[in-house]
Design a protein around this nucleic acid. Structure first.
Lengths: 363, 363
DNA sequence: CTGAAAGCGCTTACAG
DNA sequence: CTGAAAGCGCTTACAG
C-alpha cells in the first residue's frame, strides 16, 4: 500500500509520461486528452479542466515527434554562411525572436565554407526536419539551386534574391550608387572603394552589386575611374585597415572612400588615425549596414535595416506556413543614408597641389 | 500502361516517399530497408546495395520524427541571453560547428529579457524536443534552477557554473585580479574599472566576479579604493564611452582602467581619443575577451578563449549523449593576458602634479 | 540473412 | 460530448 503510494506520479514506467498515463489518471480516453490539450471543440468544460489539471499534476508535455508524425514539425531552419558577423547574428537574432513568438523552433546551420555548402546542398540535412528554411545571404551556384527544389519544404531567401523564391533584400546597386553620390554631393571627385573577397572563393551577390553601384556612379558623374581606386582585400578583421593602406599608398590617394560595410569602414578609420589623418578633414569614409558600432565612431553609413529584413523574412515564413501562397513576392526594402561625422567636403586646393607634386616626383 | 509509367517515382501518393515505398521498389521488407540504411549487420552486401540504390533513386530520407519516436532526437538546444554580443555569437557558432560534425541539429533560444527567461523556465519549451540543452551565461534564479531538473534532458552550463551540472567556465575573479595586477606591475596605483549592468535587471555572475577580482586586487596591493573609481553604466554600445567620461570627470581620474569586456574597452578608447587623450601615454586600458576587434585597436586584454569554452561544452554534450556520466565535471579553463599597445607605464610625476593642482582648484 | 508483427505516442475520421 | 480503432513512419525483438 504504502509502497504503491510512492510510485512516481510520472507513471509506472521509468521514462516519459505519455498521453495514455494522463488519460488513465483523468479517467478519460486518449482521444479526449488530445482534444482537450489542443483546445479542440467537443470536450465538455468539466472534462477539459479535469484533463488539464491532470496534465499539470503529471507535468506532462506532448511528444512533438509523435504529433508531427502527421502534421507539421513547427520547426524552421535558418541557414547562413557564418554567425560571427554583425549582419548574420542580427538576422538570426531577429528571426529567432519573431518565429519563437509564433511558437516555432529555430534550427541553425552554418555553411560558411565551400565544403560545408556543398555538403549542405548534397545532403539537404533539413529535409523532413523542418517546415521551412530561410537562406540568409547564401552564395548559391547552379547545381545547388537545383537541389533546393528537392528540399521539400518552404524556402525563403533573405538578404539577396534567388529565382522566384519569396525573398527580402535591399538594392545593393542603389546602395553603392547612393554612397558615391553622397560623396559627390559633398564635392569629392576622386573616390575610392574598399571591397572584400571571401577567402573561400564564394561570390557574394551584395559584394558584386555594391561594386556595380559604385562603378555606375563613377561613370554617371564622370569621375576618374582609376582601377587602383578600388582596393580588393581578403575578408577579415583587418580588411578595412589593409584596404585603406593600399589606397593611401597610391600616388594620388582618394579624398573619400566608400566601404563595403560598416565593419570595414571602422577598420579603415583606425588605419587613418594611425597615420595621423583626420576623418573627414583629410579623408571621408562611408560604410553600409547600420551597425551599432558605427554610431560610436560617428560613421556615415547607408542603413540597410537588417532588423526589418529579418522581420519581413519571418513574416513570409509565417504566411507560407499558414498556407498563403507567396508566389512572386520578392520584396526590396528601402535603405537610408545616415549622415554622421565621417563624411564632409574635401579640402580641395591643398590636397590637389600636394598630390600633383607628389605624383610628379614619384614618376 | 503508358499512364502507369508516368506515375511519380516518388510513390503513388502525393506526399513524402516513405520506407514502405523503398521496400516495395527494392523488393524487400521494411525491416531490411531500415537495417540497410543504418548499416546494421545482418544484411547481405547485394541486398544492401540494392536498397541503397533504390533510396538514391527515390531520393528518400528517413523521417526523423518517426525514428525518434523510440530513440534520441539528435537535437541539442543552445539557450542564451542574446545573440548580438561577440561572446554569444562566437559561442553559438562554435557549438553549432562542433555538434553539426557529430550530425546533431542545433536549436537556438534567446532568453534575453526577464520575461522571456521566466517563460522559458516555466514552459520549458525544450522538453521532449532535444537530447541536451546548453545554457550559455544565463543568470538563473532559485526557482528557475529548480525547474531545470524537470527539463528531462541533459544539461550543460557554459560560461558560468551552476550547482553540480557539468559546466565549463573561466575564473572571472582571477580575470579581474589579473587585469589589475598587470596594471600594478606597470606602475599604476590609481586604477579604475568600467562595469555594466543589465538594463533588464539580471545579475551576471561574470560581472560580479570580475568586480570582486578587481576589488581583491585593490585591497591586496593597497591601492586607493575610492568607490568613484568604479563606473557602473547600463549595457549598450555606448557603455564604455559613458563609463570613461564618468571616470575622466573625477577630480582625480585613474591612470589606468580595467574594462569588463573588450567591447567596453574599445568604446572607452573612442571616448579617450575624442578628448584628445592618448592610449597608453595618458591612460592605460585593458579589456577581457579576446575579441577580434581588440587586435585592430591594439587592445591589451585577458583572453578567455571563448572558442575553447564552446568546444569543451560541445564535447561534454557529446559525452553525455554517448552515455558517459559526467558527474562532477566542472571545468575551469585558463585565461591569458595578451599584451598589446593599450597598456603601459603611467606618466607619473606630471600626472600627479597636474591632478593635485586640479584637485585643489576644484575644491 | 530476411520478414511479419508489435510498438513508439500521438491524431483523426468514424460511431455512438 | 466521448471512445475504440486505424494509421502516421519508423525500429526492434522474435522467428525462421
Amino acid at each position: 500500500m504504502t509502497e504503491e503510494d510512492h510510485e512516481p506520479a510520472a507513471g509506472t514506467h521509468a521514462g516519459q509520461v505519455n498521453m495514455a498515463d494522463v488519460a488513465r489518471r483523468a479517467g478519460v480516453s486518449i482521444a479526449t486528452v488530445s482534444r482537450a490539450l489542443r483546445g479542440l471543440p467537443g470536450v465538455s468544460p468539466r472534462t477539459r479542466s479535469r484533463v488539464l489539471s491532470t496534465v499539470e499534476e503529471l507535468d506532462y508535455v506532448v511528444s512533438p515527434a509523435a504529433s508531427s508524425l502527421r502534421g507539421a514539425t513547427r520547426r524552421v531552419a535558418v541557414v547562413l554562411p557564418r554567425l560571427d558577423s554583425w549582419f548574420a547574428s542580427t538576422m538570426l537574432a531577429t528571426i529567432e525572436s519573431t518565429l519563437r513568438q509564433a511558437d516555432l523552433d529555430v534550427l541553425v546551420y552554418q555553411v560558411g565554407t565551400e565544403e560545408k555548402r556543398t555538403h549542405f546542398f548534397r545532403d539537404l540535412p533539413t529535409r523532413r526536419k523542418v517546415d521551412a528554411v530561410v537562406l540568409v545571404t547564401l552564395p548559391i551556384g547552379g547545381e545547388e539551386e537545383a537541389r533546393l527544389d528537392l528540399m521539400g519544404v518552404q524556402v525563403v531567401i533573405a538578404g539577396t534574391r534567388l529565382r522566384d523564391f519569396p525573398s527580402v533584400s535591399v538594392d545593393d546597386v542603389a546602395i553603392g550608387y547612393g554612397a558615391v553620390r553622397h560623396l559627390v554631393d559633398l564635392g569629392h571627385r576622386r573616390i575610392g572603394m574598399i571591397r572584400t573577397f571571401d577567402t573561400d572563393g564564394a561570390q557574394w551577390a551584395s559584394e558584386l552589386n555594391r561594386l556595380t553601384g559604385y562603378l555606375n556612379a563613377v561613370a554617371a558623374h564622370d569621375l576618374p575611374d582609376d582601377p587602383a581606386l578600388v582596393a580588393t582585400v581578403p575578408y577579415g578583421i583587418d580588411a578595412g585597415a589593409e584596404g585603406m593602406r593600399q589606397l593611401l599608398a597610391l600616388p594620388e590617394p582618394p579624398t573619400a572612400v566608400f566601404c563595403y560595410s560598416d565593419d570595414i569602414a571602422v577598420a579603415a578609420m583606425t588605419a587613418l588615425s594611425q597615420r595621423g589623418l583626420r576623418v573627414p578633414e583629410d579623408i571621408s569614409v562611408i560604410g553600409v549596414d547600420g551597425h551599432a558600432l558605427g554610431e560610436l565612431f560617428r560613421l556615415t553609413t547607408i542603413d540597410q535595416h537588417v532588423t526589418d529584413q529579418a522581420r519581413t523574412a519571418s513574416t513570409m515564413v509565417l504566411d507560407l506556413l499558414a498556407g498563403h501562397s507567396l508566389a512572386d513576392s520578392r520584396v526590396t526594402l528601402p535603405t537610408h543614408l545616415v549622415e554622421r561625422g565621417s563624411t564632409g567636403p574635401p579640402a580641395p586646393s591643398r590636397t590637389r597641389e600636394q598630390r600633383a607634386g607628389r605624383t610628379r616626383s614619384a614618376q
